[in-house]
Amino acid sequence: MTPDQILADVRAMLVEIIGPEYALGIDIGMTTSFEADLELESIEFVKLATRLGEHYGHRVDFVAFLADKTLNEIIDLTVGEVVVYIADRFTPARTAAVDG
């Protein structure tokens, strides 16, 4: 799974969550900020986390990803940080470790 594929997935989920009308004016890329650029509401971020879990399965534990972050760090997250986290979960070494 390449970062480009993951970015496409995350972008599609975000467009669905925030609505195509608003998303139309934003080029969602790796440096796009959830807060400053997308103005994602916190409950919408919960929706995204749930969708990611449903889409990628048990390898992607978004709750654990957020666990060590402060509220400010979560607010400052970019789309790229989420994409990199997911890509990391699908590296061969990680996949072998998770799937045992």
Binding site: E41, S42, I43, F45, V46, V63, L66, A67, L71, I74
Partner: peptide
């Protein structure tokens, strides 16, 4: 809404 707990205490 529930997100106020999702990001603070629940985890």
């Amino acid at each position: 809404n529930l997100s106020s707990f999702y990001y603070t205490l629940a985890n």
